Computed example of a mutant assay.
Amino acid sequence: MLRIGVLGAARIAPPALIRPSHAVPEVTVAAVAARDRTRASAFAAKHGIAAVHAGYEELIADPSIDAVYNPLPNGLHARWTLAALAAGKHVLCEKPLTANAAEAREVAAAAQASGLVVIEAFHYRYHPLLARVLEILPTLGSPRRIETSLCFPLPRFGDIRYDLSLAGGAMMDAGCYTVHALRTLAGAEPSVVSARALLQKPGVDRAMSASYSFASGATGHTTASMWSRRLLSLSARYVGSEGSLKIFNYLMPSAFHRLTITRAGRTTHERVPGAATYVHQLRAFAAAVAGDASANLTPPADSIANMTVIDAVYRAAGLSPR
């Protein structure tokens, strides 16, 4: 049994870990800690978590805990992931894994030295939809154009996702997905050509668009927003020399999605069955901890590459990396 402790009584924890654990019998959510113990106790009572710890350090030091789920604000991901690794715990960390590429390299080095598993929680990557997409791509010829988007309305400007000190910004919260999906579909690393930010406050982007080039000659574009005219968008498009592919809702395909493939003038539509993305992700985490390295599709090495692009996007937009 893989016993997981949760750092913080975060809103994302129930859909991303607690409910999925009910479908993954080899996992149990065994403990929670929060800055406010009263809040942690209420969270534990609501979700049937047996142990409540006084703080993050106490939870990480608990010898009965095998792994840690880290859903803390972006700017705290590296600090507490490193602390968990130092205490001998595997880590499932919410995206983005770190605030920047330098921190990602630090986490990757610590994970490699410890032999412990670290997974960045790009949950969409674990759904069978993405496996099917990657199976189709070679039939579409060499890549010509790739576009990805994730836009949603978050007008609560006091939210931590707009806090520069906590590594906030649209490119961090939504943009990390768009960059990851771009890289996944391309199967290669992009160079940033240009980027444009819309600011919510100095240094904090509420929206970001960026253009890319690839060594193959292909071009790319990402659109990320937490507040802009483009209120809602979650799509990906791949144009190859022999055909094209579109995905509506690559992020949460178990809710609803549509895969559209065009080849030789013929268009077909597919839907790929699967459980919730978070269930697939948790199964992969458990399998990786059990020794199946191939189960980890989003390891720290991938995080370094993703954060390198995000850092470059911020610089191209005239902003500093987080």
Rank of each mutant, 00 (worst) to 15 (best):
I160C: 11
L116K: 06
S211N: 14
Y177I: 08
F122E: 00
H221F: 12
L182T: 01
S235C: 15
P153C: 04
S225W: 00
P128F: 13
T139Y: 07
R156Y: 08
S142W: 13
L134Q: 09
G217S: 13
G141P: 02
F248S: 13
M208V: 06
M172Q: 09
Q200G: 11
Y162H: 05
T184Q: 06
V133T: 08
V239M: 08
Y238H: 04
R183N: 04
L130V: 15
S233M: 07
L182Q: 03
G168R: 05
W227V: 00
A131M: 09
H257C: 04
M171C: 10
Y238M: 04
A181Q: 13
H257Q: 12
S194Q: 11
G217R: 09
S142F: 10
E189L: 11
T139D: 15
S225V: 01
F122M: 05
F248K: 15
F157G: 01
S235G: 15
S228E: 09
P253K: 08
V118K: 02
F152C: 02
S165L: 15
G187P: 08
G243I: 12
G158Q: 09
S254P: 08
H127V: 11
D159M: 01
H123I: 05
A218V: 02
A167T: 15
L231H: 07
L130R: 12
T178S: 10
R196G: 06
L199T: 02
M252R: 12
L166Q: 15
L154I: 03
S209R: 07
K246Q: 15
R132E: 11
T223K: 06
T139N: 07
F214H: 10
S235E: 13
R156A: 09
Y126L: 14
Y212L: 07
P128D: 13
P202V: 12
V204C: 10
L185Y: 06
F157H: 14
K201S: 15
T219Y: 01
F122T: 01
M208L: 10
